[in-house]
């Protein structure tokens, strides 16, 4: 009974991943895709080089990147919404997304896209961590971090990052401007094994740690004092959860850009369908976030082939109507 939602979510994620591996602008029969994957693992199936390159060096790392980014954003969104007891919270409210954006845009401004490689993601990651530390310092009152102060500090920092990003955008030339615009829309086009290895340790660490906060977040729904009476170390929980979420979100935003929608709305989708308990919400949000992100990226690669859409446009375009439909369906229950 309790396993069923997990199985369903897993099935969706698996289906999205299979679609991502077997669909694309190049028509590759499913058998060849399987053969290319096995050949990538070291078996010899005599797959031609082009097919092998497309499946093992383009589609597979990109699918993993999409899953990691989508899963991480939804996971962090679910955690932060619980922590702030605020349905509008997403990784943006902590200033993390803004910090990562400022870092990445600064790197582009100083010529990072020409450098390629790891400079852009590292700058984004540094920006995200700097923002998280700044928010922590700004929000602390006598060693405690009241939620309201954390939220407001996050908003202030996000506004500041945005202003500074705006200054850089204004000072950019035509070429930098186009790079920045494309980065801001979010894309997995730069996915490669190198980049995946660069972010995977942080994102996976964060993704594995966040579900452990579920019990504490459930208690927090009753209020901070009540959670304290239940034996939850509230201050530690807040600092750890924020830190861990910042680490993961910073890592994924730095390679993919601020992919919209997933972090804010996927947790709500899961809450609407599976209730607010965090022990279920957190893993399910991660699975559905990953599935939505992988499916959206598959569409982004196919729809205007041989060109490509920014994935952030697609996540919002398929996610928002579905969300509206769910709200309509559950309207009665929500009103009650």
């Amino acid at each position: 009974m309790t396993m069923r939602p997990a199985v369903v979510a897993g099935a969706w994620l698996l289906a999205a991943c299979l679609a991502a591996l077997s669909l694309g602008p190049s028509r590759i029969p499913p058998m060849d895709v399987a053969a290319a994957l096995l050949q990538g693992l070291g078996l010899d199936f005599r797959v031609d080089e082009r097919t092998l390159a497309i499946v093992a060096s383009l589609r597979l790392p990109r699918m993993l990147m999409a899953a990691l980014v989508g899963g991480m954003l939804a996971l962090a969104g679910a955690t932060l919404q619980g922590l702030f007891r605020n349905p509008l919270a997403d990784p943006g409210v902590l200033g993390i997304t803004g910090g990562a954006t400022l870092g990445a845009v600064t790197a582009i401004f100083f010529g990072a896209s020409a450098m390629g490689g790891a400079v852009l993601p590292l700058a984004g990651f540094a920006g995200a961590l700097a923002a998280a530390i700044a928010v922590d310092r700004l929000a602390r009152v006598d060693g405690r971090i009241p939620v309201a102060s954390l939220l407001l500090s996050g908003i202030a920092l996000e506004a500041l990052s945005r202003a500074l990003t705006g200054v850089l955008i204004y000072a950019s030339d035509d070429r930098q401007l186009r790079d920045i615009t494309l980065w801001l829309l979010g894309s997995y086009a730069g996915a490669s094994w190198d980049r995946l290895l660069l972010i995977a340790p942080f994102a996976l660490l964060s993704a594995c740690a966040l579900p452990f906060f579920a019990r504490g977040l459930d208690a927090l729904m009753l209020g901070e004092r009540e959670a304290g009476h239940l034996g939850i170390p509230v201050e530690t929980l807040k600092r750890l959860a924020v830190g861990v979420a910042a680490l993961g979100v910073g890592a994924v935003v730095s390679v993919a850009g601020p992919v919209g929608f997933v972090g804010l709305v996927v947790p709500h989708l899961v809450r609407l369908t599976h209730g607010p308990g965090h022990r279920r919400l957190i893993p399910l949000a991660a699975a559905y976030g990953a599935a939505l992100s992988v499916a959206a990226d598959t569409l982004a690669r196919i729809l205007v082939a041989p060109a490509e859409l920014p994935v952030g446009l697609v996540t919002a375009a398929i996610g928002a109507p579905f969300f509206a439909f769910l709200i309509r369906r559950e309207k009665r229950r929500l009103a009650a």
Binding site: L58, A189, A307
Partner: peptide, 12 residues
């Protein structure tokens, strides 16, 4: 657009 080329699209 030339600043946003797609790898698999072109390879296809």
């Amino acid at each position: 657009y030339l600043r946003a080329l797609a790898a698999e699209g072109i390879l296809s």
